[in-house]
Design a protein around this nucleic acid. Structure first.
Lengths: 214, 214
DNA sequence: TTCCTTTCGATTATCGATAATGTATGGCTG
DNA sequence: CAGCCATACATTATCGATAATCGAAAGGAA
């Protein structure tokens, strides 16, 4: 049997997942309008679940909604992207100082993601690189053991991924990669505080790559 | 004329505002169920807008929603509260280092909130104290000029306020107050970095007050 | 009694239809 | 021809009703 259980997820959640997929894949690009009835007909549901899913995305900040007009995929300008990076940095820098000993588990996970990034660089697979890059930073936040912190970080991730899908071309992967090993090294040899210092300013270095698309 | 314009806000937004007010005022306490049709009848609307408002609160993390069962005001345990404080600290510490010169405007605003806190302490008005305390910390984040950062901070504020309304009694206001002036002083005399150091650990000192309600 | 099953009441989830609203079109007027 | 108003259209916002689902109460068997 291909299907072990029946679909046990509300229509709203299914619609939401589908829309997020389209957002990340770039199928829905910033500026695109999302029409409730159109999506409803497309997915074979009524307007209500679609509407709920969209409002959910709105609360999450992925789409912009104008009353009586409709929803459109949010357009992030350069400033907003930089802001998001700044918040990421704040969360990650603080998370590092909260990571509990022993640090071995985290370090080995970071190493794993470094491998993935190198592999992606060789293949020039930007999608894969972005995923590994995200996973690298996420694991730092995850290992501090603060679920609220991680939830906040995650709420920024989709924004980042939407962007990354958009401006794939302008990132020199090897340069971006080279920013990461020193952090792991500092972790391994000097502990949390030193790694924290290195992480600070990590994102400001990335700012330049967005210039062309401002 | 008492009313200058007609009500020009969607029912969903009105319902949402009303529910948030009830949350903050403690009218809706953690654990309380929120029934869609009941609220709808009470406010004279149909189920749909209420439903949307509730789902919005769900996404914001204020209510917990179980499919086919219903929504209830989220119960925060001690751990989650500490986590939220930790995130607040991360955002605020980082924000301080981003505040642009000159610092005069921020310092005078902080002074204003200190006054409010003192006044609230004299009157033993806990609600007022909480507001001033919140305003104090919020202005630090506001002055860094990062709207995304501020939005994140705000998303934690309602949680905090719900809690504060709950466990009003256990806070010795003068002690909580005394944590704040040194921060302003450090700001005035030694600049951002010194203030940043003082703010770090600010919230861990507050941890003890929640012990009794864990 | 205790456990399992069934039934019932309450509530949410979804639907289809209608009202409200904003935007674009085209004609009228100067 | 330009500017303005009215109309038509597209879309969202809201409604009332129905279907799906869950939890508790009632009933029966071991």
């Amino acid at each position: 049997m291909a299907q072990t259980t029946v679909v046990r997820q509300s229509l709203k959640d299914q619609v939401k997942s589908i829309l997020i997929d389209r957002l990340i894949s770039g199928d829905l690009a910033p500026g695109d309008r999302i029409k409730e009835l159109q999506v409803a007909r497309e997915l074979g549901t009524s307007q209500a679940p679609v509407r709920e899913a969209i409002r959910c995305l709105e609360t999450l900040g992925y789409v912009e909604h104008i009353p009586h007009v409709g929803a459109m995929v949010r357009v992030f300008n350069k400033g907003e992207i930089e802001e998001a990076y700044e918040v990421r940095e704040a969360l990650e820098v603080h998370s590092i100082s909260l990571v509990r000993e022993p640090l071995d588990a985290l370090v080995s996970e970071l190493d794993k993601h470094l491998d993935e990034m190198r592999a992606a660089t060789r293949k020039r697979n930007i999608r894969m690189f972005t995923q590994a890059d995200n996973a690298f930073h996420r694991s730092i936040v995850a290992y501090c053991g603060n679920a609220t912190m991680l939830a906040m970080w995650d709420s920024l991730k989709v924004q980042m991924q939407v962007i990354a899908t958009l401006i794939k071309a302008s990132m020199p992967l090897d340069e971006v990669y080279s920013l990461h090993p020193p952090i792991v090294e500092a972790f391994r040899k000097h502990g949390r505080e030193r790694a924290s210092v290195l992480l600070r300013g990590h994102y400001t270095m990335l700012g330049g790559y967005w210039e062309s698309t401002a």
